[in-house]
Design a protein around this nucleic acid. Structure first.
Lengths: 221, 221
DNA sequence: ATAATTATGTGACATTGTCACTGTTATTTG
DNA sequence: CAAATAACAGTGACAATGTCACATAATTAT
């Protein structure tokens, strides 16, 4: 446990011995299955959540109920903190943001009280949080920028490249629907464009799977 | 000066006497004319900027040079801090964000060194900054949400209502172009929709001016 | 095997974005 | 002041994307 925390927590070197001990003593693990959804604000917030192993997608949706429009803001990978859990301990966002696990995921949870205490005493911890938030802030602005100013075909190509990197393979296991939720568009649009990509022999399509044939040409789009 | 700072700085009550003195001694004012543009990252960052009196618009643009697409992220009014100036002192965003003054604006500037020192010693100052950032973060997510999931007519109506509140009058002095830049759309689109609003007798149009005729019906859109 | 579920495909149409203009109203300048 | 210039607004044609209402195909459950 201690070794893992050492690796995962960026601010570990700046903690005092006492703080380290407290963290090792009080932090606990929780495991959730893939596809579990957290709605920020609804679920009670137990403390600061840090991804030990797994993957999560942070997104917003059109809350108008009927048609489930969504767009992905960013993802959390191993070692990332969920700044929403951080924010909910300090001051709440008044916006509905959700998290969906894309793999079985294990979190470390730093209990609320402990985290607040340490982040109030140790400036590096607070700095770290601030940087994380700034970083996600950048991501969201980037998404907005892309959504508004960039052609769908271009964004789809980027998404394919991103998922190729996430899965470390030219064979991507993903549905058109999932891509649409990533990009904030409709499934039909993704289908249309992928069809074009296939005609151009950039990809090969099958149910729930996209095989990248020409990564170089895809990158140039 | 001291009285103004007392009013403007939310964290004033939490400062020590020494800190207060230092702030009064080192903070200075700068005035800029309406329409001045700051590009975050380009202009050297002298310190934390706080709006004393005036109005600024924070926006992103499509940096592809030719066609000047823009969308407004949020506005700074009296007493607001420019979190971009804060961010640039701690860790830089790698995204191009700009600020345009919409009125002649006076800023207080807390010099970099002083601000860093105080925010490192005084947890309330850092907390305040964190809350400001979270707040703007919310705003940006809100803009994204609106852009993706909401019909243009609805958003235009909202924008008119917002500007009515900003100017405290049913007579809004604004061009179609400015509205388009707020909403992240094209001037022509704004013109089209305003035309419809006029036909529905919601507004009255003239050059550089929109008069709201039926605020209630506008709010219901 | 049959039914239910999930994924994909397609055409018609609505909304919004882009382009290439024209016309109109203010502002500057000779 | 009149003419030139710049800023603002209007318009039609067309492209890109979103929405809807389905059809079809592959997979999983009963």
């Amino acid at each position: 446990m201690k070794e893992t925390l050492e690796k995962i927590l960026n601010f570990w070197p700046y903690l005092s011995e006492v703080e380290k001990q407290e963290i090792v003593a009080q932090t606990f693990k929780v495991n959730y299955e893939s596809k579990k959804i957290f709605v920020h604000g609804k679920d009670e917030c137990k403390g600061l959540m840090i991804v030990n192993k797994g993957r999560a997608r942070i997104y917003i949706n059109s809350d108008n109920g009927s048609n489930g429009g969504e767009i992905t803001l960013y993802r959390l990978l191993d070692g990332d903190v969920c700044i929403l859990s951080a924010a909910c301990m300090m001051k709440s966002l008044d916006i509905s943001v959700s998290m969906e696990l894309e793999e079985d995921t294990e979190f470390f949870i730093l209990p609320k009280g402990l985290f607040l205490e340490i982040s109030n005493n140790n400036i590096m911890v607070k700095n770290y949080l601030l940087e994380e938030i700034s970083d996600k802030f950048s991501s969201v602005i980037w998404v907005l920028n892309q959504y508004i100013f960039t052609k769908m075909a271009h964004r789809l190509a980027s998404a394919l490249i991103e998922h190729r990197a996430l899965g470390e393979s030219d064979d991507i296991e993903i549905t058109h629907d999932t891509l649409a939720r990533d990009l904030g568009t409709a499934r039909e649009v993704v289908t249309r464009l992928l069809k074009q990509f296939q005609n151009d022999e950039l990809v090969e399509l099958s149910r729930g799977r996209i095989k990248i044939l020409d990564i170089n040409r895809l990158m140039r789009i």
